[in-house]
Design a protein around this nucleic acid. Sequence first.
RNA 1: GGGCUUAUAGCGCAGUUGGUUAGCGCGCUUCCUUGACAUGGAAGAGGUCACAGGUUCGAGUCCUGUUAGGCCCACCA
Length: 921
Amino acid sequence: MKDIPPRYNPKDYEESIYSKWEKSGFFHQEPDPSKKPFTIVIPPPNVTGILHMGHALNNTLQDILIRWKRMQGFASLWVPGTDHVGIATQNVVERSLKEKGVTRQELGREKFVDEVWKWREQYGNTIIRQLKKLGASCDWERTRFTMDKGLSEAVLEAFVRLYDKGLIYRGNYIINWCPRCQTALSDEEAPHQDVEGKLYYILYPFKEGEGIVVATTRPETMLGDVAVAVNPKDRRYKKLIGKKLILPIMEKEIEIIADDFVDKKFGTGAVKVTPAHDPNDFEMAKRHGLEPLRIMSPDGKMNENAGRFNGMDRFEARKSIVAELEEKKLLIKIEKHDHAVGHCYRCHTVIEPYLSLQWFVKMKPLAEPAIEAVKSGKIKFYPKRWTKVYLNWMENIRDWCVSRQIWWGHRIPVYYCENCAKTGIPKSKVKSQKSKIYAGIIVSKTKPEKCPECNSTNIKQDEDVLDTWFSSWLWPFSTLGWPEKTKDLEYFYPTSVLVTAPEILFFWVARMIMSGIEFKKDIPFSDVYIHGTVRDVTGKKMSKSLGNIIDPLEIIDGFSADALRFSIISITAAGQDVFLSKEKFEIGRNFANKIWNASRFVLMNIGLGRQGSRLEAKDLNIADKWILSRLNRTIEVVTKALKNYGFNEAESLLYDFIWHDFCDWYVEMVKPEIMTQGSGLKAGGTKDVLIHVLEDSLKLLHPFMPFVTEAIWQNMKPLQSESPDSLGGILSPSLVSVAGECIKERESIMVSKWPEPEKRYVNKQVESDIEVVKEAIVNIRNIRSDMNIPYSKKLTVNIAPLKAGIESILSDSMGYIKALAQLENLIIDAKLKKPKSSLSAVTENFNMYIPLEGVIDIDAEKARLSKKQDALKQQLVFTEKKLKDKNFMDHAPESVINAEKEKAEAIKEQIRRMEKTIKDL
RNA sequence: GGGCUUAUAGCGCAGUUGGUUAGCGCGCUUCCUUGACAUGGAAGAGGUCACAGGUUCGAGUCCUGUUAGGCCCACCA
């Protein structure tokens, strides 16, 4: 058994343990009426993505919950899957095609989509393999992909239902347009970033006479101006309303209109109106019956309406136009102007507000019950503050643009009758319920044979696909079989908790709540746990472009999956952002090694083959009682912490208990007893306590560090099951040979029972007694350290108790004190007085005297101390001299002076203490 | 512009509903290769809890304000 290596080597265990778990079917979960369900759906990662630290944190949190609940006896289901992320994936595949010299347009839609599928076949499992390396205990048999048949069916069903309810409409509106991806984006997909911009003041001359100055940040859009607007209350312009202006460059006549929207204080108080390229202008134009004029094409270049700028890139056009205005002396001034501009969340290109025909979901009716669900407390956010963020967004929700001009995704289930479009059947004549909103439009899950209006078969499907989030928002129930009425759906829905990053609160969380209530008539989950964002040490978000990524796989390789998991949780305070650096993973690695070695000690001294445990009071000594009390209180507080999603609290409680209580104190206290008894199999008492505490500790730790706990668990005990299944992989080779045939496969720790706190072991009296014992030991060690007395020198210590009861506490634990402080003799007597040549320690419980006659050379020690004292005195003189130095006092900053003063005080104190010690000796 | 959040030891962070002497990890100093572990053990140094007020018998914790970071949202061109 000495062959158990003194280092935990994760590479010997992690892979084989995981494959064993997987094979054993522990991850799989069917509906089980005898148990309560506990369900989590994974926030689906990008199908072609790779694991980053955010995923590692997110999935560790979920795995902790699911493993914990599984051990508690819940039917614990964790549904994994991936998301097709339309735009991003299409971009990636397009880029790879480009390298081969092919564009998607050349390839054509069908072939291109085939290419994307091929891509997915090749890379789609990467992230899943990586999650397995992390130890994620997902039910992999249920792995879902948003483009799977069932989930696609759900998308169509949802779209058609919403359409029939009148919650989906099509229309020409200003949307966020990415000229690079060439698609519309939702508001959430176009986050605003502060940009250092310029405000251009341009003179628009009257037909006759002076003119009016307008301010704009995007001068190129002036080509599409249809008016200039002023506030009707603005005295400066009141008289000018209705007057005609000549739009420079285009030399077109436009009118000055009055609109309340215009802010008198901004710029010149006069604003150019460009309805096709600005959402506000669009609204204004609508109010005034002005026709929008589009001057840009979808690729961000100026179009035929832009006159001679036709074909020029938008930013090039800006330059040329500014130059031309300057030349014509129409450019009054340019001011610096910082403002927030939308950027494509996939390619970071500057968004163009663009007028186009898109599909929208009406959100207000969906939001109302979703607001109520949170307000009433049916859904709770952890930490609570996210409630406000959620409500604020929901209460100001705007319609959701769901059509995307790309090919990779769910094609919109809308069909157009070309015949009706030609003949233009008026809306009033439309008979079919399904097409009540637009003539010639058929919304259907399957392609209709013929047009219900005119029986024409000339029918074409909409070219666009749906926003990826339109499939993601159905995830909690689409993965369970919806729209089919499955047993899974009935049993596992609603799910228990959603664990996610704050970035996707609006994208995903809020929308899932709305869709759950809309389609399932029930909330999708009751708890939402939002963890922090992973950042580097300087506080920057980890991202590829910043090059500050710490690759989780590299960490797993260098430290172990357990170390990664434990470390990342330990530095994640609830909902706070996580600041990472590589060194931080040493916490977990060291802890795994510590518990490995503690187990190694237990195994080496207790022996394999121990079964059961007898923890009767009569067999227990005070140390046993103490550790059992601490254990049971730890079980209670750890469980409570997990219940409140206090992951790092639970972890640090375990860390303290295992490392400090169990290893530092209990194991050290019982060492003499264990060692002298050898590795016999006698039941009862300390040996059983060791096994019991270690087992429970491993169980408590298992959700956090699944691999090392399983490896030890399998090494630990002989095993109930009679199955002759091989031990390969899990037991260390050395142990197999030592234990030989008596060892059979042990049931996995992951399906062992989560410990319950047992009140009968909780003993506050014993705990406080042990504190007194520790106090005595620490005081002796303290003096040893001060006096440089090595542990090999045995001491005699006299203790005079100062309170009733202390005497019996100390004499009951005399063995521990003698062993842990390396004493020859311990005399406890209230009447003891300070002996000659001794050092003392005084606490509220006792006076302690350590005679040093014969232990150390008293005279030499005195000499050593006075020499040291002299050195200190010299230092003090130097410091005090400095403090009297006028030059120093006048010029040094106050903080430095104070530091010097403190230093002087500290030295004085040290000298005083030495004085006393010398006197005592 | 609105909202959220942070400020505690050199660094990174805990600190639950206010309650003894403010904790942990890293780092630092001294000692220790003692039969589980040097990825370890023992001892130690190091804090005006950002600042200013207030509530209270009592404040790191609650309230108000100030300062400095960070994040999110927002259609002032």
